[in-house]
Design a protein around this nucleic acid. Structure first.
Lengths: 253, 253
DNA sequence: CTATTTGGTGTAATTGGTACACAATTGTAG
DNA sequence: CTACAATTGTGTACCAATTACACCAAATAG
């Protein structure tokens, strides 16, 4: 929660440059040590966690806004971003509104208003991200999907919807280029799918299917390091990957 | 194009009740005589066609807004509506903005501003709809997908995106309850699919697949009227249909 | 050098999808 | 009332995709 002075300062700036009552919230997925992670922020002086978000500048395309917001939170550019839903319940930010209600007169209170939020989900390479808190947060960090904290506002719904969308997209979009390091093994890629889907997959069938998509290059090197046979390394065939992103993986009807 | 007086009147009202720079555009699909139709409006005194749309009231959920907008344009309530994309390019309504630019001072000009538009697509029963023009249009009518007029603004993009989304959804959602009359024959349902997909399907395989979904009731009556064997009538099993809407038709991974 | 662990690979069975043809019913034209 | 034209109802054989499943190979730890 901001002090009155902080709020006033923020508001003066915000009202000048941002569109009213429109926000963007991002669900940033990363993958590390076999765990699916989501980037979250913890409010100052409160045990309330929320998703990275921000506002749209008056003459800024919304895609650009989403990219800009994430650039500041993660340090990375050119993030894989996908719009997935708009959250437009007038009460969705009620708690927030109440909190700030009396701090400024209503017509001046950027936060006293309803916000319609455009949800984006992002897939990023865990190691490239430098989580950076914003003005309202003391912590910005990765949280494991298995041990999520309490969410502020409707951010749990936003997160859930993003995850459901991601799972659905897995059926007709290649995934992984943005979540895996440049080189990876088949078991590592399988672990990614298993983690997203929260479900075990068959090793052999997974491999066959993946190779069938034609978006992988098998490298001649292997990754040593465990007390077992060294798995081959793969990289994505970017050209085919992009094509598959456009065309989709299955034809359907 | 509105006169200055009309614009001023509209603005006074609009500014009081609607959220700024947020709009809703709807792609309403109907099906009639084996043709896919989309509901469109023609601007007063211009050969410019656009999609039914409107604005969000200050304390109104966006779903409700979309329903309200369509209720006025079609006369029907409880429409099957699905949010599919947000169009947020700052230049998307440029032509519109220019047109109205000099008619009112910028801070008062509801239409001089950028609009971020939330796209919904709707599936409706053609016969229940009473197309009704709005204040800016002289005609509101069904247009055939095969002979679409020139679109205003970015409404062609909105329409295209809706159609692509619908085609994709066909793969994992049942469809037809909102587009077909209460009772229909299998060939009629097939025609719907063929029209949406713009593609011929095999009669026997289509039937097997549809019946396999378990969302149809075969009725004992047949529909006579052609110089040929009378096809059986079917109706949707609403309970299973709703379940399929929720669960999806195919499991994927 | 042996045990343990995990990766690599192929095949058979099942399921699902596609292609395809003939008999039945209705209406119409003679 | 009969023959014909149009379209529906239905089943089967083939191919493709998915699933289930087991043995051998390589790396490390001891």
């Amino acid at each position: 929660m901001l002090t009155k002075q902080e709020l006033e300062d923020f508001w003066v700036e915000a009202n000048k440059i941002y569109l009213d009552h429109i926000s963007i919230d991002c669900v940033v997925f990363g993958f590390h040590e076999g765990q699916m992670k989501v980037l979250m922020l913890k409010s100052n002086n409160e045990d309330a966690w929320y998703l990275p978000g921000g506002f749209v500048m008056k003459q800024e395309p919304i895609e650009t806004a989403a990219n800009r917001i994430l650039k500041v939170r993660t340090g990375i550019d050119e993030i894989f971003l996908k719009q997935f839903h708009v959250f437009g319940d007038p009460d969705r930010s009620k708690i927030h509104n109440e909190m700030y209600k009396d701090m400024l007169p209503p017509e001046n209170n950027f936060f006293g208003r309803r916000f319609i939020s455009i949800g984006y989900y992002a897939l990023v390479d865990f190691f490239n991200v430098t989580p950076t808190p914003d003005a309202f947060s003391e912590i910005c960090t990765w949280r494991d999907l298995n041990e999520l904290p309490k969410f502020q506002l409707d951010h749990e719904l936003i997160f859930r919807t993003a995850l459901d969308t991601l799972r659905l997209q897995l059926n007709y979009q290649p995934i992984g280029y943005n979540l895996m390091p440049r080189q990876f093994t088949m078991p590592e890629l399988q672990k990614l799918y298993e983690t997203i889907l929260d479900k075990k997959l068959d090793r052999r069938n997974f491999q066959r299917r993946m190779l069938g998509f034609g978006i992988l290059n098998k490298l001649s090197q292997t990754r040593k390091g465990g007390a077992h046979k060294a798995p081959y390394l793969y990289s994505f065939d970017l050209e085919n990957y992009q094509a598959a992103l456009k065309e989709g993986l299955k034809s359907g009807w």
